[in-house]
């Protein structure tokens, strides 16, 4: 039972939230220019790491805001909570793949 610190509402029980899966998967700007393989990579392929995982969460029964969590998938320890648009911790990667503005 995770305790999640919503950036807007503070610490709340997991049951108020919905996990939206891996974060920082950017929708391609020109899908038509992609091969089927490239499109499938965006659509279906996931890193699914054992350990630190950056993922999107939605405060469904609260402020209805999406935000990002970096969480250890083995210990369930929450390593970092940051808003959509904030850089992922890995600065280089954030520049290359950072989502949104």
């Amino acid at each position: 039972m995770l305790l999640i610190r919503c950036p807007w509402c503070g610490p709340r029980d997991e049951s108020e939230f919905h996990c939206g899966g891996e974060a920082h998967i950017v929708r391609p700007l020109s899908p038509d220019d992609l091969s089927d393989e490239q499109w499938a990579d965006y659509l279906f392929m996931r890193s699914n790491p054992k350990g630190a995982h950056r993922e999107r969460w939605y405060h469904e029964a609260g402020c209805r805001r999406w935000f990002n969590i970096e969480r250890d998938t083995l210990t369930h320890e929450i390593l970092r909570i940051y808003r959509i648009g904030e850089a992922a911790e890995d600065k280089k990667r954030a520049k290359a793949k950072g989502k949104g503005a």
């Binding site: 392929m45 996931r46 699914n48």
Partner: peptide, 17 residues
């Protein structure tokens, strides 16, 4: 653990654990 092994082999899978 399929994704963990796939990562060792250098590709990703369409699965989540």
């Amino acid at each position: 653990h399929a994704s963990v092994l796939a990562q060792m082999a250098g590709f990703r899978l369409p699965v989540e654990s």
